[in-house]
């Protein structure tokens, strides 16, 4: 169920530029932290889903959604939101596909974000 990703819609550039202005030289730290933190969350999410640990999955996907939304990465946040809602309901369907969509989305975002810090 992987959707086609429009590279231009991956990131809300207005939000990101506002953050760049706010953080100044710490912007690089923000991006690096986001990439590291999100990669770790996705890894934990993957393990949790495989183990059927809905609670941990809920927590990680919620965190990923929140920090993505905060820096304007809305498409990933939306994708996370669908999964989070299912974890709240207690039953997750198509977890592999959803996880793949999240990983794919994140990979695309990471490519794009790295262009800002090089």
């Amino acid at each position: 169920m992987a959707e086609e990703l429009d590279p231009n819609n991956l990131i809300d550039m207005d939000s990101l530029m506002m953050l760049k202005e706010l953080l100044g030289e710490k912007f690089v730290e923000l991006i690096e932290t986001y990439l590291r933190d999100s990669a770790a969350r996705i890894e934990k999410l993957k393990v949790a889903l495989e183990a059927g640990d809905i609670e941990t999955a809920k927590h990680e996907v919620h965190g990923l959604k929140g920090s993505s939304r905060n820096i304007g990465i809305n498409s990933l946040a939306d994708t996370c939101d669908i999964l989070e809602k299912q974890t709240h309901a207690g039953t997750v369907t198509n977890e592999e596909q959803q996880l793949a969509a999240i990983e794919q989305n994140f990979a695309a975002v990471a490519v794009k974000l790295k262009t800002f810090i090089e």
Partner: peptide
């Protein structure tokens, strides 16, 4: 905040 990015943003807003 357990999210390092969120914390970074918040701390920056607070400092500013």
């Amino acid at each position: 905040d357990d999210s390092a990015t969120d914390r970074l943003i918040l701390e920056t807003i607070v400092s500013k």
